[in-house]
Every structure is written in C-alpha cells, then in structure tokens.
C-alpha cells in the first residue's frame, strides 16, 4: 500500500516535470533556405533557371533581420530587445534564432525588418552580429549591407559569370530597409521558408549582375526581396 502511494506520487512528479520541461522549451525561429523545390546550399550545386537550360550557383547568401516582434491580431504582444541577427545560409547555426522570452505569449503574426535601421547605421561601431568584421559593412561609404547574394550564372556577361548583389542604404531616397509580416500558427517553432527562386528570376541577369552601393536598383530589389520569406 505504502509502496503504491510512493509509486503514484513518483508518476505524478514525473508528469509534472514533463509538463514543466515542455513549457520551458524555447520558442525558436528556424529558416529553411530553398531554391524552388530544392534545398539551397551555398557552392557547387547548380539550380536550373527558367526553361532555357540556364543555371545558377549560389556562393553567398546572407542578410540581417532586426526588430523581431510577435503580434496577436495586429497588437504587439512581444518584442525582442536589441534585436539584430545575421542570417547566413553557409552557417547552419545562424539559421535558428531562439527567442526564449516569447514562450508564454499568444500570437498569430511575426514581423521583423529585413536590414538595419537608419539609427543603428549612424551610431558608430557596434558589436555582436553587427561587428564590422562580419563583412556586412561597407568600408568606403558608411552603412550596413542588408543583404548579400553572390554567385554565378551562365547568363551573366561578367568576369567568371559572377553576380554580386549587395543591397543596403539607409538614407532617403535610397532607404532599403523593408518590413516583413507573416501570419504564423502559434507554435514553439516558427518555420520560415527562404525561397530565392522567384527573386532571382525577377532579375534580368544578362543585363544586371552587380549592385554594390545604395541606389535606385538596390531599393527596387530590396522591395522584391520581401517575397523571399514565407511560412511553411
């Protein structure tokens, strides 16, 4: 009898421990880089482009997201402090962002900026993901590169068929910062697909293979880049 009591108690304790462990499971945002239906990995792999047998290789794909917020019916229910993340497809670890503080909130929308806002752009040297050693800061003209996409395609008439799109700029009229808003199901894991196929196909690579400073094209492409993000 006594033993049975202890046993039940033990089970009870174990169960509540499990429940506890579950609520303590951290909320995370996980990015899934894709090229159409294929998983996107930097280097080596060829992805076909359009219907004419053209192809593309991706060497670098990285970008900043900032100001992550969770919303419930258009009301902000949680926001991350000092929210700056460099997402780099070549760095598996960077594809998951833990936001433990959000675990107990009820939300149905996530919003974040693609890029770095103008205030940070004029605030001098920063650390962490914003450290200039990360290679996402222009050296000859101040400002963060919000998004870097580099690779090769037979369509490019450039040296080694290379293309380089460095999108950035924080000053009017070339402000490239974009807001991304996605409906999500409430879940401990927010899965965000990064599909660059449509984005790349919207660029005429035979005419345009380089953007390296803030200008009109950078703004246009940044607006299109919002379409890279969707929810599984």
């Amino acid at each position: 009898m006594k033993l049975r009591c202890v046993f039940i108690l033990l089970i009870f304790a174990f169960k509540s421990f499990l429940a506890l462990a579950q609520t303590e499971q951290k909320t995370s945002i996980v990015f899934h880089p894709m090229f159409g239906n294929s998983i996107l990995t930097p280097n080596n792999l060829f992805y076909s482009l359009g219907n004419n047998g053209d192809s593309i290789q991706i060497e670098t794909f990285k970008f900043y997201i900032s100001a992550i917020e969770l919303l419930k019916d258009d009301k902000i229910v949680w926001k991350e402090e000092n929210s700056f993340h460099l997402i780099n497809v070549a760095d598996e670890k960077s594809l998951t962002i833990f936001i433990p503080g959000a675990s107990n909130t009820v939300y149905n929308t996530i919003s974040f900026n693609l890029g770095i806002d103008s205030l940070i752009n004029v605030s001098g040297a920063m650390g962490g993901d914003l450290d200039p050693t990360k290679g996402m800061y222009w050296t000859w003209q101040s400002g963060y590169v919000n998004l870097k996409l580099e690779g090769r395609s037979n369509l490019c008439k450039s040296r080694n068929n290379e293309f380089q799109f460095h999108l950035g700029g924080y000053q009017y009229p070339f402000n490239t910062l974009q807001k991304v808003i996605l409906k999500v199901e409430e879940n401990k894991k927010i899965d965000i697909v990064l599909d660059i196929k449509n984005f790349i196909e919207s660029i005429d690579l035979s005419q345009q293979n380089q953007i390296m400073s803030p200008n009109k094209q950078a703004v246009l492409l940044s607006e299109k880049a919002v379409g890279i993000f969707s929810v599984k």
Binding site: V122, S123, G124, Y137, T139, W140, Q141, S142
Partner: peptide, 15 residues
Amino acid sequence: AINQLDMQALAPISH
C-alpha cells in the same frame, strides 16, 4: 562618405 568617426578607419584599412 563616412557618417561616424568610428567607421572612418575601415576605409583606409580596406582600400
């Protein structure tokens, strides 16, 4: 071209 003194040194270092 440079908007803040801290970022100045990046220019000559990288040029």
